[in-house]
Design a protein around this nucleic acid. Sequence first.
DNA 1: GCTGTTAAGCTAACGCCGTTAACTTAACGG
DNA 2: CCGTTAAGTTAACGGCGTTAGCTTAACAGC
Lengths: 208, 208
Amino acid sequence: MAILEAARDLLAEGGVDALSMRMVADRVGLSATAIYHHFEGKQDLVKRVVEMGYQRFEEYGCEAMKRYPRGSIELLLALGEGYVRFAFENQSYFRVLFNIQRDPRDVEELPSGGGYHVLRQCVVEAMESGAIRKADPDLVAHYLWTSVHGLVTLMLACNIQKCDCAAEAPLGSPVELFRAFTTFLIDGLRTRPSESRKTQRNRSEKLK
Amino acid sequence: MAILEAARDLLAEGGVDALSMRMVADRVGLSATAIYHHFEGKQDLVKRVVEMGYQRFEEYGCEAMKRYPRGSIELLLALGEGYVRFAFENQSYFRVLFNIQRDPRDVEELPSGGGYHVLRQCVVEAMESGAIRKADPDLVAHYLWTSVHGLVTLMLACNIQKCDCAAEAPLGSPVELFRAFTTFLIDGLRTRPSESRKTQRNRSEKLK
DNA sequence: GCTGTTAAGCTAACGCCGTTAACTTAACGG
DNA sequence: CCGTTAAGTTAACGGCGTTAGCTTAACAGC
């Protein structure tokens, strides 16, 4: 539908403030009020655009799923990298998808609800394969999600396109920064080679 | 100044959309245009309120600094927990502080620029004390910051006040969720158990 | 073929909003 | 006493989301 596409473009161009009913109407050659025959209001229109965005969002995850074996750490990292890439290749979109909402009424469900279950499944499989240590999969999935989400939102909030952390080796893109972070993520998650099976089991029980 | 206080209250009550020049003016008993003699516009007014917020924000960090010894992992975790507590005890404030900005013009400096240097210093000291393994302190500081920032922004975005991750032990507050995450954070950051017997004992106690 | 219904468009208008322009008023220094 | 400046005012402009009320075309049923 033309209205949705125009709204999506405006959203991508200038964020939610740049999307006005009158502007959308101009782009599709209608009067502003005509849109109200198809959408309940601006809020509804934005919501529909966001729903469109979920598809595009999930493509990044699916792409990662195809490239790496199930149950591997590489797959988990690829999911995270896909998250970062999606966010920065569709910045305005992401801003809308995960904008900090004031209004509790808007939030009937989690953003990327479908995407979460994919992540969770990958976590479960990585635990079963022994790639990462065993723990509550929801907890680990949330941990992974929030970790990468923080990287993205903080860099978006600060309009950072690059991070000059290490003077000796400046990190160019958000993706590179994420890759630098994976060291910490992995060392916190993967089964330690030096550990015996017994200590691993002991440690899992201790964590409860 | 009364205008700033009224603006701060409106911001806290309903976010940036609930702050209108006319509303602020009403609260302080002026006409809307009078505000323009003290502030350049709404954007400027919001910016000043945000600057006020930095103070409050830093209080949480300072409080943590007082309670834990320098160079300890506990201090790093306390800083993170302060971040979470600040965010959820001042939700509307935090939303403004770290709102995902569309406009690159607004971003002259990092939010909480001062707070970052405190965090970085704590990271450096934790490395020197051997509490965490040695790496680029900026990288680690960014890692810690983004990790906790992601937790906060994601829960705020989804209006989650609690997380039912583990069915057997649902995590009530964001702070509790953060504490559950610290296991992963620590195991990725601290000096490995094989390197020091003392830290290992500490960890066992900490996990309860 | 007429008619009732429905979808989809329109214009006009309401009440907000941020902001500007032009004017008034009070305080104060020379 | 006058000029300047700070701080207030009202009126107005253009834009916004949204509602009300009207028109028009398409289509189903008699």
